[in-house]
Structures are given as C-alpha cells and as structure tokens.
C-alpha cells in the first residue's frame, strides 16, 4: 500500500479526497432537501418520511457514521492543504490585486467554518433536540413550525443556507477540475453547475423557514 500512502500525502491526492468527500456531502444535501420539501405536502407527508427514516434502524446509523466520516475527512484534508498553502508564501505582498478569483472562491475556509458551526447548532437543535428539550415529544412537523416561528432561529437557518450556497457554488464546479474533468465541450455546464446548485439549494432550504415566518405553512 506504499502507493496509497504516497498518493494520500501528495497535493493532488489530498485535493481529490476533499473533492470526493465534498461530492458525497452534496449528494446528502440534495437528498436532505428533497425530504424537507415534503413539509409543503402537509403534516402527514413529512412525518411519514421521518418515521420511514427512523424505521431503518442500523442502516440509518451506518449512513450517519458514513456522513460524519465524510465531514471529518473533508475538514482534515482541507486543514492539511491550507496549512501547507500558508507555509508556501511566508512573506505576503505589499500590494496584491486579484484578477480572476471570485469572492465565493476566496472565502471557502470562512464559509466552511461558519457552516461547520451551523451544522453543530442544527444537529443540537433538530436531531438531538438539546436546545429545546420539549421537542422530544413532538412530531417533526410541529417541531419545524414552532421553531421557525422564531425570527432569530429562522434567520440563523437562512444565513447558514446562503453560506452553503456560496460554498457549493465554488466547490461543486471546482471538484470537476480537481478530478481532472475539464473539456471545452462540457466546460460551460461544469462552470454553471456549481452556482446553479448553490442557488437552488439555498433557495430550497430557505423556502421552509421563510414560508413559516410568513404564515404560508402553519
């Protein structure tokens, strides 16, 4: 396995790990959104979906641990790469002008870190229900509605999802390049897919707290 060690320690190997774990998490986020949107189909639809998920028992835990591993590896390799990057330019320029880098691509570490703190809050809030112990007795639908009626809670979710969109608008397009997928014929699609997915996910997720705030879903 010496080739694997060498590969994982190389810049391209580490970058591929970030790309692949990122891709896995994108898959999860898309599935998560499609589940969440059932809230618009009514109380029974989303409660039924939640019961179906929880009936999977061990399988659900396999998925959860797998997802946690993806998050962990994504962060581990990003930190490793980032420290190396900082080390590669010990003396900064007095004047530096950016010509092509976008705000979303330049703030990946920041958007990633805020997203991480968002995820911790979100898990404590709706998965483990630590922030509001009274949720333990409630069904998913009631829990969502009562949570998102608070403008502060809704706002923190919306900010989290806007940052998710920003993170993915660079990340998703970028992962194609890292994995070597760059072709003039497909580049217009590759360039567009990150920003499109970012906007769709941010709007899709945010639509739920916004609808609750404005009383469209009760």
């Amino acid at each position: 396995m010496s080739w694997f060690k060498q590969f994982a320690q190389s810049s391209i190997g580490a970058k591929s790990a970030v790309a692949l774990t990122g891709l896995a998490m994108v898959g999860f986020v898309v599935a998560h959104l499609s589940g969440n949107l059932l809230v618009f189909a009514g109380r029974d639809a989303i409660n039924g979906y939640s019961e179906w998920l929880h009936s999977k028992g061990a399988l659900l835990w396999v998925a959860r641990i797998g997802l946690l591993a993806m998050v962990g590896l994504h962060i581990f390799f990003t930190i490793k790469l980032n420290l190396h990057n900082k080390d590669a330019r010990p003396v900064a320029y007095v004047k530096k002008t950016y010509t092509k880098a976008k705000p979303t691509s330049r703030s990946m570490v920041l958007s990633g870190l805020v997203l991480l703190s968002y995820i911790v809050y979100h898990l404590a809030h709706l998965t483990f229900r630590v922030t509001n112990p009274e949720f333990a007795q409630l069904d998913v639908y009631t829990m969502l509605i009562s949570s998102f009626r608070s403008p502060m809670v809704s706002l923190s979710y919306i900010v989290g999802m806007v940052l998710l969109g920003a993170h993915l608008s660079h990340g998703v397009t970028s992962l194609f390049q890292t994995l070597g997928l760059n072709h003039p014929k497909y580049n217009p699609i590759i360039r567009a897919i990150g920003p499109i997915l970012g906007v769709v996910l941010a709007l899709g997720f945010s639509s739920i707290p916004v609808s609750v705030l404005f009383g469209l879903v009760q």
């Binding site: 810049s11 970058k15 790469l81 990057n85 080390d87 010509t99 092509k100 330049r106 970028s174 890292t178």
Partner: peptide, 14 residues
C-alpha cells in the same frame, strides 16, 4: 514547497 491549487485560476489570468 509550492502550495496547493484551489482552482481560482489567477495563474491563467496572468
């Protein structure tokens, strides 16, 4: 000791 690419394409621009 060069850094790692973050696909921002500043290199191509200059």
């Amino acid at each position: 000791g060069f850094g790692n690419c973050t696909n921002q394409y500043e290199c191509e621009a200059v």
